[in-house]
Design a protein around this nucleic acid. Structure first.
Lengths: 156, 156
DNA sequence: TTACGTGCAAACGTTTTGCACAAAC
DNA sequence: GTTTGTGCAAAACGTTTGCACGTAA
């Protein structure tokens, strides 16, 4: 059974992969929500949206789609692997309570930042070939703020 | 057998933990090298330095030391867990070839950076309670540069 | 009809846990 | 003597793989 969702079918076939239903559903989920799902969360989200996917198929397809450059594999500070439809360089806002990640851009003088050694006996960062800088803004998402406020009230 | 290394003994006992030899050796290794070892690498490094440590003891002690705030658990972009003696806010330079991490500070106008939404339908980062910003400079470490240069020559 | 995708179950590497023994207080 | 740490072996967890079958070109 081929995938009927035109835009995703095209994206996938451009990469010389077969546009199967499983692949289209994964791409559709990520594009529609912009969420950074862990594989486990994705399995649950796909189950809620209709037919469940087997865990092996999910992992196999996530690997294929990531290899093809259609999605990006990222690992949050909590160590959980997540997938992002945004494969262009960008930054993240991470909730330190629940680990949820949000894609963000940045306003400000990014190009003026330079790494400098922290210790006297440390090698000089200038000896590294430098590439991009990735910013990780840490914070508490609105949902966790509400949950924390509730817990604080309950303990009064 | 208690640990004799005065400075580490004190650090550990201040946190109401017993300053055992295993814990002192772990702290000593991290302080002396400033390396960001994975547990597996640490096991190997400790073996080379003398008596090996059992893997269970290593994990148990890494967890205790991290809970006590004596070391920090960090997860690199490659998904490997590593430990850092520097528990103060700081930044990292990450080798995109081997995954090695270096502690760095930053020069430049950090405080002027603000996250901004990337998509039209995205929630506003301003609704998050914001904390610190963590910078991840990506690059290639000197060792990997040399290895890459060698491989390039060999293929000529 | 040949290549590729799916899903089960088994294997894998990393991390955690239960437990008996040893060491520290 | 009670609490805490160690180390083995077993379990748990997330992820990958082998394989038989199904589907696509």
């Amino acid at each position: 059974m081929a995938c009927e969702r035109e835009q995703f079918t095209k994206l996938i076939e451009q990469k010389n992969l077969r546009a199967t239903e499983a692949r289209c559903r994964i791409l559709e989920l990520l594009h529609e929500t912009h969420e950074h799902y862990t594989p486990e969360e994705m399995l649950e989200a796909l189950r809620e949206r209709g037919k469940p996917l087997s865990i092996a198929t999910l992992y196999q397809n996530l690997a294929k789609l990531a290899d093809a450059g259609l999605i990006a594999r990222i690992v949050g500070p909590d160590g959980h692997t997540r997938y992002d439809v945004n494969t262009l360089p960008h930054h993240h806002l991470v909730c330190k309570v629940c680990g949820r990640m949000l894609d963000v851009g940045v306003e400000g003088p990014l190009q003026d930042l330079r790494p400098v050694a922290l210790y006297d006996d440390e090698e000089d960062p200038a000896t590294w070939r430098l590439g991009e800088v990735h910013l990780e803004f840490h914070g508490v998402c609105p949902a966790c703020q509400a949950r924390l406020a509730e817990a604080a009230e309950a303990s009064d």
